[in-house]
Design a protein around this nucleic acid. Structure first.
Length: 274
DNA sequence: CTTGGGACCTGGCTGC
DNA sequence: TGCAGCCAGGTCCCAA
């Protein structure tokens, strides 16, 4: 599933190919991708020049004039191609550019979105901090977790708390930090939060270095697959043996999401009063 | 304010 | 073998 590392990998691949180009055509074989504003709302971007390609959390943004832009969200199965999409996939949307480039949005489950924002600021502000930014400190994370007693796994998936972390990397970060996914977020002490903060950044940066994880439909815009999945310790690995201690990886439901973890390396906290 | 649950989606899998 | 029904998970929306 596309999370921060996958979207960042896509951003880096697309940016040099379309910055400075004008959007010359929009094709929407699946108009629902435009959301409630409808396909007509996207006509506003025809002729606009792409000033920059940005990422915010899991959102990919084609910055246009002023604070306006095209926002793409891949959700579960979305993928972007600057080449012919893989056989068997269907284009849900495509943007053509004045330099001859063509960006194709495929999305098996049709949950993804491609929308025009006249003003991007509200979107940028409502998301939590970027976990790889320099000003995202362990103290900042601790402050944000302090008011939540939901399981830490659920807190990491809340984009208002931290932007860009999804199910795979939340599981991986909790494993590296040795934290049980069910632990109430506000039960973590400073030391545990610092471990988690370090783990989040290491996991995300490592996955970017490996160009994202191709678990299902994710691929780079040139069709190549990412390789971050080969470094996973627990994510999507129920029943496999923990690489640290050899205990079988278990999977539990945390709220409505599956969480994979090592029961020995990430034991439940039984008593906080020691 | 926080929290929980349902809806959106479709291909792959399970089980009768 | 056939097919109904569940499941995967990112986000939004609504209710408590």
């Amino acid at each position: 599933m596309p999370e921060l590392p996958e979207v960042e990998t896509i951003r880096r691949a697309i940016e040099p190919r379309i910055v400075g180009a004008r959007i010359t055509d929009i094709s929407l074989p699946d108009p629902s991708i435009a959301g409630p504003a409808g396909a007509e709302s996207l006509q506003a971007v025809l002729g606009a020049t792409v000033r920059a390609v940005l990422r915010r959390g899991k959102h990919l943004i084609l910055l246009l004039a002023g604070n306006s832009g095209v926002v793409l969200h891949l959700r579960m199965t979305g993928a972007l191609f600057l080449c012919e999409p893989p056989a068997g996939t269907r284009a849900r949307a495509a943007l053509s550019f004045s330099n001859g480039e063509r960006l194709v949005f495929t999305d098996l489950r049709r949950l993804g979105k491609l929308q025009f924002y006249q003003n991007l600021k509200p979107l940028l502000l409502r998301l939590g901090p970027e976990p790889l930014d320099n000003d995202f400190t362990a103290e900042a994370l601790h402050e944000r977790l302090r008011t939540h007693r939901i399981p830490i796994k659920a807190a990491l998936l809340d984009q208002h708390i931290v932007a860009g972390v999804g199910n795979m990397y939340a599981d991986e970060a909790l494993f590296l930090a040795g934290i049980n996914p069910m632990t109430p977020a506000n039960d973590l002490d400073s030391e545990a939060v610092r471990s988690l903060w370090r783990a989040i950044r290491d996991v995300l940066q490592g996955a970017i270095d490996n160009r994202g994880a191709s678990i299902s439909t994710y691929a780079l815009p040139d069709g190549r697959r990412g390789e971050a999945q080969f470094s996973f310790n627990v994510a999507h690995k129920k029943g496999a043996l923990c690489p640290r201690c050899g205990t079988p990886i278990e999977r539990v439901m945390v709220k409505t999401r599956g969480a994979c973890f090592c029961p020995k390396c990430q034991p439940p906290v039984l008593d906080e009063t020691k």
